[in-house]
C-alpha cells in the first residue's frame, strides 16, 4: 500500500528515490530530500511527538515551519521541525516523549 500520489491529473507522474532511515530504531523509507513529516506520513505514521506534559499524541499541524508541533529528535538533536527537515539516507529520527515532572516526580501523570 502506498500513500503517495504517484500519478496526478495535472501535475503528472513522479518517481521518488526511496532511501532508508531510522524511526524510533526501526528502518523505514522516505523519498530523499522530502520533508521528514511527509516521509513519516507516507509510512502511515501520524504521531510525531508525545506532549511533554501529558503524553498526548501530536502530529503535523501547519507543515511550513510556523507552529513547531512536529518537532522530533534528529541524529540526537532535539526539537527539529520535521516539516522543515529533509530526509537523508541513514538519518536517525526519534519521537520525543512526555517529560518527567520535576516537582511532583515521575508518577504525577499515572
Amino acid at each position: 500500500m502506498t500513500d503517495r500520489i504517484m500519478n496526478h491529473k495535472i501535475l503528472g507522474t513522479i518517481q521518488p528515490e526511496l532511501v532508508p532511515f531510522r524511526w524510533n530504531g526501526e528502518i523505514i523509507h522516505g523519498a530523499e530530500g522530502e520533508s521528514l513529516a511527509a516521509a513519516l506520513l507516507a509510512n502511515g505514521i501520524r504521531t510525531l511527538r508525545r506532549h511533554e506534559k501529558d503524553g498526548k499524541p501530536r502530529g503535523i499541524y501547519c507543515n511550513i515551519g510556523h507552529c513547531s508541533e512536529c518537532r522530533v529528535t534528529v541524529n540526537g538533536e532535539r526539537n527539529q521541525r520535521a516539516c522543515l527537515t529533509p530526509v537523508e539516507k541513514g538519518m536517525d529520527v526519534e519521537q520525543q516523549t512526555e517529560l518527567p515532572h520535576l516537582v511532583k516526580g515521575d508518577d504525577a501523570h499515572v
Binding site: 501520524r46 504521531t47 510525531l48 506532549h51 498526548k56 499524541p57 501530536r58 502530529g59 503535523i60 499541524y61 501547519c62 507543515n63 511550513i64 508541533e69 516539516c83
Partner: peptide, 10 residues
C-alpha cells in the same frame, strides 16, 4: 490537537 488535524495549507 489530535494527529490528523492540520491547517488547510498543510
Amino acid at each position: 490537537d489530535l494527529p490528523g488535524v492540520m491547517t488547510v495549507g498543510a
